[in-house]
């Protein structure tokens, strides 16, 4: 991985990576990339990916409303770093992020 790629990845993940840290991240991440190489060696051409180990299928619930308790909603809103009335307050969102 190169510095530019690290910066793009950090932006996608919305993580601030300070200039002085980049060296360390690059060193560690490039070491981790060896894992990707290891996984290229076996022949898996005949194999499907395992996305879930469970054999359960079609797990769903009926369309029934169970409202969250008022006090829980209040508690969640009060946990917001900033709020206004019953809104969560955030920095100005420009249409295209």
């Amino acid at each position: 991985m190169l510095k530019e790629e690290l910066e793009i990845t950090a932006f996608l993940a919305r993580l601030e990576v300070k200039e002085e840290e980049k060296e360390r991240y690059l060193k560690d991440l490039n070491k981790m990339f060896e894992f990707i190489e290891v996984l290229q060696e076996p022949d898996i051409s005949q194999l499907k990916p395992t996305t879930h180990v469970t054999s359960l299928r079609n797990v769903w619930r009926d369309d029934i409303v169970k409202p969250c308790p008022k006090e829980t909603i209040e508690q969640m809103l009060n946990a917001a770093p900033q709020k206004e009335e019953t809104f969560y307050k955030v920095k100005k969102v420009i249409e295209a992020q």
Binding site: R61, D63, I64, V65, K66, P67, C68, T72, I73, M76, L77, E85, T86, F87, Y88
Partner: peptide, 20 residues
């Protein structure tokens, strides 16, 4: 109810009153 939780889908409720 919503597709991934049991909150009401009612339109025009007080902001964040249909959350969980």
């Amino acid at each position: 109810s919503k597709v991934f939780c049991e909150c009401s889908t009612e339109f025009g409720a007080e902001p964040n009153s249909n959350t969980c």
